[in-house]
Amino acid sequence: MHIAEGYLPPVHAAAWGVASAPFVVHGVRALTREVRSNPESTLLLGASGAFTFVLSALKLPSVTGSCSHPTGTGLGAILFRPPIMAVLGTITLLFQALLLAHGGLTTLGANAFSMAIVGPWAGYGAYRLFRRFGAPLMVAVFFGAFVADLSTYCVTSVQLALAFPDPGSGIPGALAKFGGIFAVTQIPLAVSEGLLTVLVMRLLTQSSKGELTRLGIFAGRDKTERREEAAAR
């Protein structure tokens, strides 16, 4: 769920744009360095961005019986790293605003902050943490995707609460209201996205080990991964 065009007051829209800018600029620098050292990576990064866009077009059955779509931020961060995801996610949000009327241009900064910055960083952080403590790859992938999805919607709730404080109880009350609609209802969807990401990753480890190695998923990452690779051999 993206914040729609014009939903945020101008000052909030500008402030979230300013907050997102350093992360996107950092990502742009990382992407530019990568493209200058490996010109062919332009095509791979473009394909990765297109994959992220298309992932959001998948209809996901929810635990509650309803239907939603995955954010793709967890899988994207695990595969392509958060700085690159900041750029790819922002471009994806721009395309979604112009091609699907999903999100908006005045709210691009706020949406980028939740979906392209906080979601990927939180998801990647959870993934790395679980790997560091020796969790199997798929457990780490599940929690990476779950945390990325849920944190995205929690940040969206905070953004809405800051923009529209409750007349009686202020920002905490507004956070309870928006969180109840956008974050609590998202828990089953975050579980669904975690499960889907695990299934996708399982298939990818079987069919696209070459691509995953190139993306660094299996190459010299940490002890657990090396141990798993050795066991697989």
């Binding site: 332009t42 473009g46 297109a50 866009f53």
Partner: peptide, 15 residues
């Protein structure tokens, strides 16, 4: 930056 535009162009064509 041109590399970002190039990545966006490839994205747009592959989508």
């Amino acid at each position: 930056p041109a590399p970002v535009v190039d990545v966006a162009l490839v994205m747009y064509r592959i989508i």
